[in-house]
Nucleic acid binder design. Sequence first.
DNA 1: TAAATGTACACCAAGTTAGTATAATATTAA
DNA 2: TTAATATTATACTAACTTGGTGTACATTTA
Lengths: 146, 146
Amino acid sequence: MRITQEADYALRAIYYLSTLEEGTKASANVIARSQNIPLRFLLKLLQKLRNAGLVESYMGVNGGYALSRKPKDISFLDVIEAIDGPVYINRCLYDPESCNNLGVEKCSIHKALHQIQENLKKDLSSINFQQVLDDTELDGTEYEEV
Amino acid sequence: MRITQEADYALRAIYYLSTLEEGTKASANVIARSQNIPLRFLLKLLQKLRNAGLVESYMGVNGGYALSRKPKDISFLDVIEAIDGPVYINRCLYDPESCNNLGVEKCSIHKALHQIQENLKKDLSSINFQQVLDDTELDGTEYEEV
DNA sequence: TAAATGTACACCAAGTTAGTATAATATTAA
DNA sequence: TTAATATTATACTAACTTGGTGTACATTTA
């Protein structure tokens, strides 16, 4: 019932790109060091984000990666599904044909799980990176704990 | 981001026991056949449910398993955590000490994930087996589709 | 053309999952 | 008291997933 470490890294990579001025690139090296992500692993993961259309990449000297949309238009669900594939909380909900019970339609258990899954996906898609940025700023500055 | 097949089986086993008269036992064999679960695997999984206090077991001839509480007092979360362990949607939320970013407190990403996790757990704990029973009865009889 | 960058593909160790196998123990009924 | 029916305990395993690493190549800029 958890996201992979790779998806966690991806969230942090997208977060880092969100902190930059719109359109600014960052190299994998810089992202890796700033977020404490193994470089090789990050490079591979960035390809998935690129294939999903979340980032753009630029080769060569001064190359790097930049968001292809504004932070407010990228949700946690976008990132997690780009890396881990579709979110589904049990087998039968992914491939109802292979369900060895009665399938999603007939089985009350799976119907209930389906509802929970949809709530989860809604939650994940309702949070975007602008919100995370705003939250971070609040924490560090204005509202310092006393 | 999914429950194991074992947890799915466990939900179905508990569901089956919920359909019985209160206090009635069923043997692992009967449960296995009725829910299409591999017997050996079911036997092992029933131990976990027993250790978690969800079912009681009886050895010997006419032995078997029975719920230790009423269906309405057993939630999906109870069953899933009995089998898969605590629900947490990423590593850092389970063991914040080993977080290689800033930990749940400092990192906005992990704070957001934590909120989503709590919603998920609330959802899973809000559904119990009496509800599933009721839903099943509605389906099969009164409300048959035309 | 050298240096800095991303891309592509292959490989691998460790852990997890979904089981299976075997033998022992407890209870009941004949 | 023995046979049959159950659960319990322990150990094993094949396949898959995860979280990486290694090597070689392609592109861009100075």
